[in-house]
Amino acid sequence: MTALVEVKGLDKVFGGVHAVEDVNFSVEAGKVYSVIGPNGAGKTTLLNLITGLYTPTKGEIRLGDESTARLTSNQLAERGMCRTFQHMQVCMNMTAIENVMLGLHLRFNSGLLATLFRLPSMRRNEALARERAAQLMDYVGCGDYLASEASAMSYGALKRLELARALAVDPKVILLDEPAAGLNATETAALEELIRKIAEQGVTVILVEHDMKLVMGISDQLLVLNYGRVLAEGTPEQISQNPDVIAAYLGG
């Protein structure tokens, strides 16, 4: 039992809104851990805290042996954490493949001099990055867009592109904020398959999702948030039978 991600007494207050309040949980390495709860429950805020976009008002976050609550998102990426967004964050001023290559930034960077003179070392790096990015686009199922501008892609394809970019970081832990939102049933089934494959490769997945069929089918462990507080935690079976959860969420 090794906890890869651990959250203790986490609080985030925005003005008068207590978006996340005294949240505790830990995620074991290699598991799919899902966070559910009604809109406004604080799920996105929780992910933003874990990934370094927000600083907690109070509480502790650990990644492996390290306390990470004060780290920035790029420092967390260096430590093997990456994510996708509920409101997509794709660079529309780039091509599709360049977005994925951006995800390879930490692995295939070149210095300023090598760049200015386009030295062979830089060109080799660039070719490797392009090849790896193309593989990843195939892997997530947007291989048809290898030559496209990002702005020319459909909503569903963009969501997969974002996933490819996150995988490009070669993360130990990946956080997905409502990846199935706006997808149809076929696309959701393909996404479920993909998340399963990612988890099988040993990547820890923290998933925020409204699609109960997807969540219940794929998760090892679930956390239910309500008004920023933990309502329940357990396996999918435990959660689906929890009377509090049924009253507050599943039933309504």
Partner: peptide, 26 residues
């Protein structure tokens, strides 16, 4: 040369989505 390079992508990502740039390690 700068624009078509990892440095150039990092620069363009500042315009495209600074948040995305950060989470991939820029």
């Amino acid at each position: 040369n700068i624009i078509e390079s990892p440095i150039g992508r990092a620069l363009r990502s500042l315009k495209g989505s600074e948040v995305a740039a950060g989470v991939v390690g820029v």
